[in-house]
Simulated assay, not measured.
Amino acid sequence: MNQDAYLEQLAALQAAAWPAGTPRQPHYPHGRQPLSEYLRAWARLQPEAPALDFYGARLSYAELDRQSDRCAALLVELGIEPGERVAVFMPNCPQLHIAFYAILKCGAVYAPVSPLSKALELSYQLKDSGA
């Protein structure tokens, strides 16, 4: 099967499986802008609303924005420049989200690495990502 026929078939399968009444195009309530700007918008609009709820520990949008700003400043101070890849070796926890937004805020590239990775997997992921 050639590429065009494959893509046509794939589009038909996707159209048939798409849930009725669900938009087919993304909706951007704050316009098309970087994800970090969405965090800033939610921090302004509903600063005390929970952005994260982790085992009962809540982090508001304003606090997530503040803490990620601080982390971004630290990353820049440590020499991280726009476009550099930054590996994050953490489980899913509030600090992971803080680091994620901090990396985006300083223009770097988030490169997640699972803490469950074995040494060989970790080595490959770090080399492959350029982190």
Rank of each mutant, 00 (worst) to 15 (best):
A72P: 02
Q25S: 05
R32Q: 14
P23C: 03
W18H: 13
R44S: 12
E77H: 11
P50Y: 02
W18S: 13
H30I: 10
L35I: 15
G56N: 05
P47G: 03
L35W: 14
E37D: 15
P19H: 12
A57I: 11
L59K: 00
A57K: 04
L52F: 00
P19F: 04
E77P: 03
R66H: 08
D65K: 07
G31L: 10
Q33A: 13
L78D: 12
A62P: 04
Y28R: 11
P29L: 04
L52N: 00
L74Y: 15
Y55A: 08
Y61S: 01
L75G: 03
W18L: 11
A49L: 11
H27E: 07
L35R: 07
P34D: 09
A72K: 01
L78N: 13
Q25A: 14
V76L: 04
A51K: 00
P29A: 08
H27T: 10
W42F: 10
E37G: 11
L39N: 02
L78T: 14
E48A: 12
P19G: 07
G21W: 01
P23R: 11
L78K: 15
W42N: 04
A43W: 00
P50S: 02
P19T: 05
A16G: 08
Q67S: 01
A62I: 05
A17N: 11
G56L: 06
S68N: 00
G31S: 09
L39H: 06
R44F: 14
L45Q: 08
R32D: 13
P34N: 12
S60H: 00
R66L: 11
L75A: 10
A20T: 05
Y55V: 10
C71W: 15
G56Q: 03
D65Q: 06
T22H: 09
G21D: 02
L59N: 01
Q46W: 08
A41V: 08
P50I: 04
Y55M: 12
P47K: 00
E48S: 07
L74W: 15
